[in-house]
Amino acid sequence: MNPQDPLSQLRDIHLPDPGGFWPPAPGWWLLAILAIALISALTWLILKRRRRNRWFRSARSELALLERSAAADARWFVQLNTLLKQAARERYPESHPEALTGNAWVEFLLATAPSHRVASRTVAEALVESAWRPSVSTEPAQALAFARLWLGGQKC
C-alpha cells in the first residue's frame, strides 16, 4: 500500500446482500388480504346457498321415499300433497300456500310450476282430489312425475 496513492486505500465494490423473501413487499400483503377476503366471501356465499336450499334437498329425499312406497290410495296422495305444501311454504312463504285447498291449491301449483315445462292441469287436479276422494283418479307415477317437475323448478 502506498500512502501517497489514495486509490490504493479503496476497497473493492461489494454488492448488497440479496433481499430475503421475508418480509414481503406491501403489494404482496395487499394481495394476500384480498385473496383471504375473496375466499371468505365465496365460502360465506356457498354456505348461505346451501342453507337456503336445505328444504329442496329434504323434499327430494322425501319424494324418493314416497316413490318407493307408491300406492294408489288416498293416504299416499295425502303424503305427497303434504310434501308439496311443505316445499311451497319454504319457497313461497309470503303466499301462505299451506292454507290453500282444492282449486286454489291446484292454481298455485300450476302458477308456480316451471314455465319452460308444460304442467298438466288434469294431473294436478287429480293429485289434489285423490287425497280426499275415496277412489283415486290418477296413477301414482303421473303424480310423482308432476311433483318431480314442480320441485325441479323450485330450486333457488
Results as ranks from 00 to 15, higher is better:
residue 69 S to K: 14
residue 77 F to R: 05
residue 51 R to G: 12
residue 67 E to M: 10
residue 89 R to C: 08
residue 42 L to I: 06
residue 92 Y to I: 05
residue 52 R to S: 12
residue 54 R to M: 11
residue 42 L to D: 03
residue 75 R to G: 09
residue 86 Q to W: 01
residue 46 I to H: 12
residue 58 S to L: 05
residue 101 T to A: 15
residue 52 R to F: 11
residue 41 A to V: 06
residue 52 R to L: 14
residue 71 A to T: 13
residue 40 S to Q: 07
residue 58 S to R: 09
residue 73 D to R: 11
residue 26 P to V: 04
residue 61 S to D: 08
residue 36 I to S: 09
residue 79 Q to L: 10
residue 41 A to R: 04
residue 35 A to D: 06
residue 60 R to L: 03
residue 26 P to E: 01
residue 25 A to V: 02
residue 69 S to Q: 14
residue 90 E to C: 14
residue 74 A to G: 03
residue 52 R to H: 14
residue 30 L to F: 11
residue 79 Q to Y: 02
residue 91 R to I: 13
residue 32 A to N: 03
residue 36 I to G: 07
residue 69 S to R: 14
residue 33 I to E: 00
residue 78 V to M: 07
residue 63 L to F: 01
residue 103 N to L: 15
residue 93 P to E: 10
residue 23 P to T: 04
residue 59 A to N: 05
residue 64 A to H: 10
residue 78 V to Q: 13
residue 51 R to C: 06
residue 82 T to Q: 08
residue 27 G to Q: 11
residue 30 L to Y: 05
residue 53 N to Y: 08
residue 95 S to Q: 15
residue 40 S to V: 12
residue 100 L to R: 13
residue 79 Q to A: 12
residue 81 N to M: 12
residue 65 L to E: 13
residue 67 E to N: 15
residue 30 L to P: 00
residue 31 L to S: 10
residue 38 L to R: 02
residue 89 R to I: 05
residue 48 K to P: 01
residue 44 W to C: 01
residue 44 W to M: 02
residue 91 R to T: 15
residue 81 N to T: 14
residue 97 P to H: 13
residue 69 S to A: 14
residue 83 L to S: 13
residue 100 L to E: 10
residue 66 L to H: 08
residue 92 Y to A: 09
residue 44 W to L: 07
residue 86 Q to N: 14
residue 26 P to D: 04
residue 45 L to V: 01
residue 72 A to Q: 12
residue 28 W to P: 00
residue 70 A to T: 10
residue 22 W to Y: 12
residue 74 A to F: 00
residue 34 L to I: 09
residue 29 W to Q: 08
residue 33 I to N: 00
residue 35 A to R: 09
residue 35 A to G: 11
residue 69 S to P: 03
residue 97 P to F: 13
residue 33 I to G: 07
residue 87 A to E: 04
residue 99 A to P: 05
residue 72 A to F: 00
residue 48 K to S: 15
residue 60 R to C: 03
residue 90 E to L: 08
residue 93 P to V: 07
residue 62 E to R: 12
residue 35 A to M: 09
residue 63 L to M: 02
residue 96 H to W: 15
residue 76 W to K: 06
residue 61 S to N: 04
residue 37 A to D: 01
residue 21 F to G: 10
residue 30 L to N: 02
residue 31 L to G: 09
residue 61 S to V: 05
residue 43 T to K: 04
residue 82 T to W: 02
residue 100 L to M: 15
residue 51 R to M: 10
residue 99 A to M: 10
residue 22 W to K: 02
residue 88 A to D: 01
residue 78 V to L: 05
residue 84 L to I: 08
residue 41 A to H: 02
residue 85 K to A: 05
residue 96 H to R: 15
residue 41 A to G: 02
residue 71 A to P: 00
residue 80 L to E: 03
residue 94 E to H: 15
